[in-house]
């Protein structure tokens, strides 16, 4: 028992890395919020555009969504960080992680939103158009709110799944929670920083999980 405490919840180690780990939390929160904000917004806009434009113009959006849903996020981050410089594009680790995860979240969001928009009955369009409402007004005020109700539960789940991928930033030198914990682990030859990281992730994401449970209850998927 003593060895376990010494290795995993060592108070000396805990105190030594506390400040550094707190800094990492701040950065992780910042990265997560940026990814959520930009990824969801981009995906939303792409989903709406895909419904509004003629079939031919949907192709680029479909390709984008399929590509970024197919590639593992880790590969995207690594490509951003190690390959883009050869194309003359040099981004910080933070920007690489943000850009990569934003695009992945956007791709999934686009698919979910598009699916929701398509699931709203044709009759809603016809009723709105028959009263003289334009197609954009109909999309935004009649169809989109109904689609959002249907998609908010899967969207929340997908968002959480992708938000956790900020931990992948650790491999491209983003000083987020896991990255700091890993270097603390090497420097101290002690696992306590990993315990701290695990606890921090729980503190960060538990509220989101609770929120998603509430969302699922409040907006059942059948709309």
């Amino acid at each position: 028992m003593g060895r376990f405490v010494d290795q995993f919840i060592n108070p000396v180690i805990w105190a030594r890395y506390w400040d550094e780990m707190l800094g990492a939390i701040g950065l992780t929160v910042q990265l997560t919020l940026l990814v959520l904000l930009t990824g969801l917004l981009l995906g939303l806009v792409l989903g709406l555009i895909r419904v509004a434009v003629p079939p031919l113009f949907r192709i680029p959006i479909v390709i984008f969504a399929d590509v970024f849903r197919a590639i593992p996020p880790l590969v995207i981050l690594v490509v951003n960080y190690f390959a883009l410089p050869f194309a003359g594009i040099r981004l910080s680790g933070f920007d690489c992680a943000w850009l990569g995860l934003c695009l992945v979240l956007a791709a999934f969001t686009e698919e979910i939103i598009y699916g929701g928009l398509r699931a709203v009955g044709k009759g809603q369009w016809e009723a709105a158009r028959s009263t003289g409402l334009g197609s954009v007004t109909t999309l935004m005020l009649i169809v989109f709110p109904q689609a959002l109700r249907m998609t908010v539960a899967p969207l929340t789940n997908r968002t959480i799944a992708i938000a956790k991928n900020t931990a992948l930033g650790s491999v491209i030198a983003v000083p987020e929670i896991l990255n700091i914990a890993m270097s603390a682990l090497s420097n101290s030859a002690n696992s306590t920083p990993l315990t701290m990281a695990a606890l921090f992730y729980i503190v960060l994401f538990a509220p989101l999980i609770v929120f998603s449970r509430w969302i699922e209850h409040r907006f059942p998927q059948r709309g």
Partner: peptide
């Protein structure tokens, strides 16, 4: 379309709006 009203078999009311706003929105 404002001069020609239409009523559908399946009503097609907007489910996220009250009856009043279903009528008022146009």
């Amino acid at each position: 379309r404002q001069s020609v009203g239409m009523v559908f078999q399946s009503f097609n009311l907007y489910p996220h709006m009250t009856a009043l706003w279903n009528v008022a929105i146009a």
